[in-house]
Computed example of a mutant assay.
Amino acid sequence: MSAFTDGLMADRTVFVAGGTSGINLGIAKRFGELAARVAVLGRNPEKAKAAADSIGAGALGLSADVRDYAATREAMEQVVAELGPLDVVVSGAAGNFLAPAAQMSANAFRTVIDIDLNGTFNVFRGCYDLLRRPGASLIAITAGQAVNAIPLQAHACAAKAGINQLVRVLAMEWGPEVRVNGISPGPISGTEGMARLAPDHDAREAYYARIPMRRWGEIEEVAEAAVFLCSSSATYVSGTILDVDGGSQLGDASRGTAAKGLA
């Protein structure tokens, strides 16, 4: 059950980059349910239109690659022209795959940096003079790789660490009129990433055992966190990375539990 009242985001314009699927689409839908004017951006025009249709009447679906600053900026200008100044901007476009660093090409590494880190900068820099002031709220979708070194994830770890620091710097430079925060989701059901990392029952059970809350999160739980960060309940929150991960960042909760009879 949500703590937020119907119509909470009425008269606000929300732009979600990478908002055509997964967590980002879930965030866009939640803002739409709360009466916001919503626009989503993705590389595929058909997916962008389908995502907008799933959000509801009046939602915009635009296509651009966040690696292309000019195209991203043009899309945001269109949103402002049709829906008004931007109140909330979410940057969530991402790319990832498993690969050992010694076998990863320079191009593969650069691709993830370009989508995740450079894409986040392009979205936030591109929207800067299109924001409603005061009160605009920016959210970057990051990940636990930003603070935890993970084998086969050199590219993602580097990109997400950069995003976290970008959030903090922009919060310092753009306050007090613009708040900038990040959300770091843990394992989330119904996402492409978890389908790849835990494709069968045994793999899923192994993940559950390591998470303090003993379950994966839901897309809706991440969306609720995004609404909170953009609500009047978080007006003194800026430069923060909010972990929505069931305690995953605390470490492996399965260690030692069997010996103590707690498993």
Rank of each mutant, 00 (worst) to 15 (best):
A94D: 01
A81I: 11
G95Q: 13
M76Y: 07
G119V: 07
V112Q: 06
G61K: 05
D129Y: 12
M104H: 09
Q78R: 12
L131I: 10
L86I: 15
A136Y: 01
T72Y: 04
L130V: 05
Q103W: 06
L83C: 00
A99P: 03
G135Y: 01
G135Q: 05
D65I: 09
D68P: 00
R110D: 15
D68K: 02
Q103L: 12
N96I: 02
E74V: 08
Y128F: 15
F124M: 10
V90E: 09
A101C: 12
V80G: 11
A101Q: 09
C127E: 13
R110W: 08
I141R: 03
T142W: 13
G144K: 11
G144A: 05
G84P: 00
Q103E: 15
A81W: 08
L98G: 02
L86A: 02
L131P: 01
I113Y: 05
E74N: 11
A106R: 15
A94T: 01
V112R: 00
L98K: 09
L60A: 12
G119K: 02
A108P: 04
R125I: 11
A64N: 08
D116V: 10
E82V: 06
F97T: 05
A140R: 06
D65P: 08
A108N: 04
L62F: 02
R73H: 06
R73D: 10
Q103F: 15
Y128V: 11
R67F: 04
D114K: 05
T142C: 00
P85K: 14
D129I: 01
A143Q: 07
Q78E: 09
L83F: 01
A99C: 12
R67I: 08
T142P: 00
L83S: 03
R73G: 01
V88K: 08
Y69D: 02
G84M: 14
S137A: 15
S91F: 13
A102R: 14
I115D: 07
D116E: 04
G95M: 14
G95W: 13
V79P: 01
G61N: 13
A102K: 15
R67E: 12
Y128D: 10
F121R: 02
S137D: 07
L98R: 03
V79F: 15
G135A: 07
A75V: 02
L131Y: 06
I141A: 01
G84L: 13
M76K: 07
M104E: 13
R133Y: 07
F124Y: 05
L62A: 10
I139T: 03
L60Q: 11
N107P: 04
R110M: 14
G95A: 15
A108I: 09
Y69F: 12
G144L: 15
P134F: 04
T142Y: 11
C127Q: 07
V112A: 02
N96M: 10
F121Y: 14
G92A: 09
G135M: 04
S91T: 11
F109C: 05
G84I: 12
D65L: 08
A143R: 09
G95S: 13
